[in-house]
Simulated assay, not measured.
Amino acid sequence: MENVKLAGFGKRFLAYFIDGILLSIVFSIVLIPFGGILGFMGMKAAENGGEMSDEAAVATAAMAGLSVGGIILVALVVPIIYDALMTASTKQGTLGKMAMKIKVVKETGEPLNTSDAFIRAVLKSILGSACALLWFVCLFNKQEQNLHDMAVKSLVVSAE
């Protein structure tokens, strides 16, 4: 793709940071009720002098396990779905990318399809979690691509 202005590491990092803040706010709003449920269950136990029947203890442990498991699942899956759907949309990027006026395109300049956007989002999540240094790969190649970009042959470019 000729005559395209690549986004650069700084804009990409700020977009990722903005998305992290937005997702944190959403998670806080959505997950607060889980804390309330667990707190209520703990108060019920305290009313009984800390004594619980075996059935109540099992129910409390199961609810706590489901809540924590749900929180972990949401924290892992929602960012991937958000990234993939936003990148595959007509906006071609997340809210953070839109704020930074950058977008994701194929090396040919076409928008990413949903499967490429999903693969990119999954790899971005896995590789970013595995080793933060992998975020700096884009500093060492001509097309400023990270590994998740290379896998689906995408570029992050200026949307202006």
Rank of each mutant, 00 (worst) to 15 (best):
K124E: 05
K124I: 02
S125R: 06
S125D: 05
S125C: 09
I126T: 05
I126S: 06
I126N: 08
I126C: 11
L127E: 04
G128T: 00
G128M: 08
G128L: 00
G128C: 00
S129T: 11
S129P: 01
A130K: 06
A130F: 07
C131Q: 07
C131E: 03
A132R: 13
A132N: 08
L133N: 08
L133E: 03
L134I: 12
L134D: 02
L134V: 11
L134W: 05
L134Q: 05
L134G: 05
F136H: 03
F136L: 13
F136T: 06
C138L: 13
C138Q: 09
L139R: 09
L139N: 04
L139A: 13
L139D: 02
F140N: 05
N141Q: 12
N141T: 09
N141D: 14
N141E: 13
K142H: 14
K142C: 09
Q143E: 13
Q143R: 14
E144L: 14
E144R: 10
E144G: 04
E144A: 11
E144V: 06
E144K: 12
Q145Y: 02
Q145P: 08
Q145S: 10
Q145E: 12
Q145W: 10
Q145R: 00
N146D: 02
N146G: 15
N146S: 14
L147D: 07
L147I: 15
H148E: 05
H148W: 08
H148C: 02
H148P: 03
D149C: 00
D149P: 01
M150F: 08
A151M: 10
A151F: 02
V152I: 07
V152C: 03
V152F: 00
K153V: 06
K153P: 06
K153H: 14
S154W: 05
S154Q: 14
S154K: 13
L155Q: 00
L155P: 15
L155I: 01
V157H: 11
S158M: 15
S158I: 13
A159P: 03
A159C: 12
A159I: 11
E160Q: 12
E160Y: 12
E160D: 15
